[in-house]
């Protein structure tokens, strides 16, 4: 198809405009974290490192950050195991209900956070009676880990399943032809094949959990605050604007390179 020069220019401009649209808000927040002024108004007044120093010296954001890291690590570990298992099952076997299971995997991220949040809050707060014994999950570190793992499974799953789908089954066949038994094939062929995809899934699951706010708000107990919660409770307070800017920028600076790394790993293919 021949596209005239002016339409070409308009299209290229639309790409540039989209990139500007996507990045300017993030840059604005990053710039404001170095602002000598204390509000969100633009243009900023001057440059300072004061707020970064102050954030470094304040205990509560660091504590919240540490909580976020702990939750994200634990949730990622669970999600990785479950997601990888599911990916292998779905890719290797044909069975009734396959469609339903892939639907089930997507549900926790396709349904709005608030639905997941209220549903989990409800069941964590109840006493569950199993006849022989009854228990209540309650709220705290563990409830956050359970909740986060639930919606991180799909991330790990997607990465591994995509890799398996792209890789040739001939490799497994060749391995068997050369006399490797099941465990050897797994160790020498399958695992190296999916290793970088598992790692990419882990990074993305970590990033997803690290940023999450909706489900977190409803499933964290009192006294356990993650970094997004720390930001959320301070967003409306005029006095906290500079520190919120710093921590928001910090989240970006941590998450975006992680996502980029995951992207590289996904692309790199079997190593």
């Amino acid at each position: 198809m021949r596209i005239s020069r002016p339409s070409r220019a308009v299209l290229v401009l639309s790409v540039i405009a989209t990139l500007v649209f996507l990045y300017v808000p993030l840059l604005v927040v990053a710039r404001l974290s170095f602002n000598t002024g204390k509000s969100l108004s633009w243009p900023p007044k001057g440059w300072t490192l004061d707020w970064w120093r102050k954030a470094w010296a304040t205990a509560s954001p660091k504590e919240a950050l540490w909580h976020s890291v702990q939750v994200a690590l634990a949730a990622t570990a669970i999600a990785l195991v479950l997601g990888t298992l599911a990916a292998f099952a779905m890719q290797r076997y044909e069975f009734l209900g396959r469609q339903t299971i892939s639907f089930l995997m997507v549900l926790p991220i396709a349904l709005p956070g608030i639905v997941t949040a209220v549903a989990l809050q409800n069941s964590f707060s109840r006493r569950i009676d199993l006849g022989l014994f009854s228990f209540r999950i309650g709220f705290g570190f563990h409830s956050l880990v359970i909740a986060h793992a639930t919606f991180c499974i799909v991330v790990a799953y997607n990465n591994v399943v995509a890799r398996l789908r792209r890789s040739s089954p001939n490799l497994l066949q060749a391995s068997a032809d050369l006399g490797a038994h099941g465990m050897q094939t797994f160790r020498l062929v399958t695992f190296p094949l999916v290793r970088s995809a598992v790692l990419a899934g882990a990074i993305l699951a970590f990033a997803l959990s690290f940023d999450e706010i909706v489900v977190t708000t409803f499933t964290a107990g009192a006294g356990f605050e993650t970094l997004p919660q720390w930001i959320f409770t301070r967003i409306g307070r005029a006095n906290d604007v500079p520190l919120v800017n710093v921590m928001a920028t910090f989240v970006m600076v941590v998450s975006i390179p992680l996502a980029w790394l995951a992207q590289r790993l996904t692309e790199s293919g079997p190593d």
Binding site: P25, L26, V28, V29, L204, A207, F210, D211, E212, I213, P228, I231, F232, I235, V244, A248, V251, M252, S255, I256, L258, A259
Partner: peptide, 10 residues
């Protein structure tokens, strides 16, 4: 991946 809340805030 920049953080949902961070973007809302932005």
């Amino acid at each position: 991946w920049a953080g949902y809340l961070v973007k809302a805030y932005a």
